[in-house]
């Protein structure tokens, strides 16, 4: 019997894996060069993109994983309404600060947010979105935090360099600024704000 096409094998492995499958892992399992695998994965991504399928092959957290298309979310959610886990605004803010400023201490997060972040940091640790990187060599040796691999998977990021770039406020012209603010004012309708309407994670 002829060996199945390598592309099919790769597809099957990614499908069957329970975590995003890394190219390194595929390479050692299949004894195939990384470069060849990357090409195949790229071709598979294109296949799913063009094929009008319900899911796509995405690169997250350093590996590849099949994920359903976002436009189908409403329906897939019905399978298990309890599965979705939402972040409070406080949690999102703190997470954004950790993501862009890591390694960072609690005190630095507190300062940037202007509020005590103890509880929300604890929640993020429990949800494994952030992790302790070590201790800072300053008096008191405070813990320093960074984001985890789960963070990348949760936000569908390849790696940290995949984070959306921070918009510098100073880069905006006053007109843009005014426009942006106006827009945000309109978004202030609490019913429209997804972040304030969701239950607070930290509770």
């Amino acid at each position: 019997m002829a060996t199945p096409d390598l592309k099919l094998i790769v597809e099957a492995l990614v499908f069957a894996a329970d975590v995003p499958l890394k190219v390194d892992r595929l390479s050692s399992l299949l004894e195939v060069e990384r470069a060849a695998l990357t090409t195949i994965l790229g071709a598979l991504q294109a296949d799913y993109q063009e094929g009008g399928r319900a899911f796509e092959l995405v690169e997250v957290g350093g590996g590849y994983q099949f994920r359903t298309r976002p436009e189908l979310a409403e329906y897939v959610q019905r399978l298990d309404p309890g599965r979705a886990f939402r972040l409070s605004r406080a949690a999102l803010e703190s997470l954004a600060i950790v993501a862009y400023r890591q390694p960072i201490t609690r005190a630095e997060i507190d300062y940037l947010r202007g509020v005590d972040s103890g509880r929300v940091v604890k929640t993020l640790l429990e949800k494994r979105l952030i992790r302790i990187l070590g201790k800072k060599e300053v008096p008191g040796r405070p813990l320093i935090y960074g984001t985890s691999r789960d963070f990348l998977e949760f936000f569908g990021l390849k790696d940290l360099s995949d984070l959306p770039s921070l918009k510098e406020f100073s880069e905006l012209t006053p007109d843009q600024l005014a426009g942006g603010l106006q827009q945000e004012l309109e978004e202030q309708d609490p019913a429209e704000l997804p972040l304030t309407s969701v239950p607070d994670l930290s509770d």
Binding site: E93, Y100, K167
Partner: peptide, 10 residues
């Protein structure tokens, strides 16, 4: 800046 970033991430 981080408030915006949180929104973008969300």
């Amino acid at each position: 800046k981080y408030k915006d970033a949180a929104m973008t991430l969300n």
